[in-house]
């Protein structure tokens, strides 16, 4: 679905992303992990044309999209939910959704309200008068209205209560089941292990690990070196518990 080859990005003279390759298939959830400053957010922004100094080949269903403008990339189906969520403070929840809704796309506001009933209750509230969790749901709901083929989520669980994180896990899995490819950038490994089937680790702008969840679980060296986890085994156990909890 989305294929990225030799992606390089620069902010001024700093070489932030140094030759990243990524592949995400339809309906697949992939995580991109790494420490602060590893280049994760810059990678996502580069994919949607928000970093002017970036090079490389980005293909969506075999068609090149690199070099296109951000709005064109979004229309083609690569939609980013940024770390700051990008909710418009002066607009109501309803208006935030309405500006993203497109006639004939099959995605409607009422479907988003079905997915996030809390948003329906907050419909008339301003974007800055809802909680962080509601803002994240609004941001994802709004991205869904853009009919994404590939959804890029930048730190979706940041600052959210565990119960809301569980809700997000359910939502993200549901979107993948509809065939949407999801790339999640996260610090929260528990979340990544719960949703993603493959993982990439980014360090100093380069991919230093790539593997399935099983391989990721066994790669304690990579985890320790590049993610600096106190106790990787425990974390994997947590994810196991979450998975079981959700399957029940």
């Amino acid at each position: 679905m989305l294929s990225v080859r030799d992606l390089h990005s620069y902010y001024g003279k700093s070489h932030i992303v140094q030759g990243v390759d990524l592949d995400i298939g339809a309906g697949e959830i992939v995580s991109l992990l790494g420490r602060n400053g590893a280049g994760k957010t810059t990678t996502l922004k580069s994919l949607v044309g928000l970093v002017s100094g970036s090079e490389g080949r980005v293909e969506l269903d075999g068609r090149r999209i690199d070099g296109n403008r951000t709005c064109a990339i979004a229309r083609q189906g690569v939609v980013l939910v940024p770390e700051h969520r990008g909710i418009f403070a002066e607009l109501t929840v309803e208006e935030n959704l309405a500006i993203a809704e497109r006639r004939g796309s099959g995605r409607t506001r009422s479907a988003v309200y079905d997915l996030f009933p809390r948003l329906a209750e907050r419909r008339c509230n301003r974007g800055d008068a809802i909680s962080g969790g509601e803002q994240q749901m609004l941001a994802i709901g709004r991205a869904v209205l853009c009919s994404p083929k590939v959804l890029l989520l930048d730190e979706p669980t940041e600052g959210l209560a565990p119960v809301i994180v569980d809700e997000l896990i359910r939502i993200v899995r549901g979107l993948a089941q509809e065939g949407i490819a999801v790339l999640v950038v996260e610090q929260n490994i528990r979340f990544c292990e719960a949703v993603a089937s493959r993982h990439y680790i980014l360090s100093q702008g380069k991919i230093v690990f790539e593997g399935t969840s099983d391989e990721f679980g066994r790669a304690s060296d990579a985890r320790e070196t590049y993610l600096a986890l106190g106790s990787p085994g425990k974390s994997a156990g947590d994810a196991q518990t979450i998975r079981q909890g959700i399957n029940q």
């Binding site: 949607v48 928000l50 980013l80 418009f88 208006e95």
Partner: peptide, 20 residues
Amino acid sequence: AVLRAGTQSTDDIELLGIDI
């Protein structure tokens, strides 16, 4: 609504596929 939103951030508008 797009106009009011645009005074906050034009990048965030573009992310929604709207040609600012």
